[in-house]
Nucleic acid binder design. Structure first.
Lengths: 199, 199
DNA sequence: AAACATATCGACTGATCAGTCAGTCAGTTT
DNA sequence: AAACTGACTGACTGATCAGTCGATATGTTT
């Protein structure tokens, strides 16, 4: 692992837990085990470090979504099952790569996005990766009649809001969130599944 | 309005938009129209200001919830309708008193709660005000058979996660959120309503 | 009018922190 | 061995900001 990657990894951990503003370059340097000035040899500014992290976050999510979609294609299923698989995928990702969602659940990235185009585009990309996953599944469900009628984009947004809210509940330790996942999946199915009348 | 209240009001606006750490006492003072040192005559520390704001936030929500519950009592309805009325209530509150949710959607209050008991208790109280509203409605729905079976606390948490997620989508301007509200209400009904079989 | 209380302010302090810079050092090239 | 290079560092700077303090002004009480 290059020094550059070491710094990014250390900064990501700290940004995830303490946020951008409350993490000093001294802390990052201490975690890497170098002088603060060394960090500035590898990166021009603190913000540049954050943007690099956001880039790898996007790439990691894109890769995970790609793998998830390929798994689905190999064994075809109803649209409603695609929706639920997408919900399960996102909840699992939030469990295995908690750092990603900790970073994204801070306010800072969205504030930076207002004044920084690159940041704004990345956040939009990340957001789209998830919502398009839901939206495509809903489209499929409309085609095979397994998902309730309604604007696919809006339905996808509501599902996204639900899952994101669940992840936030877990992040802030408001409830033993893992216990909610099965309940949430069952309720999501109820919410979206179209009963196929017996022929 | 006393100077004390003026300061709280100004600080609340700034904390809502910029957050606690990114708001300087100079900005607060400027918004009130006094010297920064005058603010420190009325409040010992910046944190004390924040805790006072959180207190009034709790009181305001408690009052709003109280009024909502009284309105419901006056004209009885099915449990499922209580749930939907609660969702509508929370979404409306997020619209009319956006500042409250902006403050609560920052990370700072939850970080302060870790080291400050008073803050932790207040956040728990606020959280309970909403979730108990949902939970009571679910209980009612179980009694009259209008809400699907399942642990009321968990169902309440899932509904809370959904609504909170929707409010966040709106806060961060990820989607024209108002357009989602009707969709969200309809989907919530689908998710929870127990079909009463024709007698 | 003297004594006291309340409210305000400008000037200051001490601490923190992102970022700079001149220079060291180990390894490579010429 | 001289010249060069990339990685690294400690000491520093300039700016920012929460909070302090002594002075002052404006009532209010005795």
């Amino acid at each position: 692992m290059s020094k550059r990657e070491e710094i990014l990894s250390a900064a990501a951990s700290l940004f995830a837990v303490k946020g951008f503003r409350d993490t000093t370059m001294g802390e990052v340097a201490a975690l890497v085990g170098t002088a603060a000035s060394t960090v500035f040899y590898h990166f021009k500014t603190k913000e540049e470090i954050f943007l690099s992290i956001l880039q790898s976050v996007e790439e990691e999510i894109r890769q995970a979504v790609h793998e998830h979609r390929q798994q689905l294609n190999s064994r075809p299923a109803k649209g409603i099952d695609h929706v639920l698989a997408a919900v399960d995928f996102m909840l699992r990702l939030a469990g295995s790569r908690a750092e990603i969602f900790l970073i994204l659940h801070h306010r800072f990235p969205y504030e930076l996005a207002v004044v920084n185009d690159a940041c704004r585009r990345r956040l939009e990309q990340i957001h789209d990766l998830f919502t398009l996953l839901f939206e495509d599944a809903v489209h499929l469900g409309h085609a095979d009649g397994s998902v309730v009628a309604g604007d696919p984009r809006r339905i996808a947004m509501v599902v996204f809001a639900l899952v994101d809210g669940l992840i936030k509940v877990k992040t802030f330790h408001l409830y033993e969130a893992a216990a909610l996942y099965n309940e949430a999946l069952a309720l999501t199915r109820r919410m979206l599944q179209e009963e196929t009348p017996p022929p």
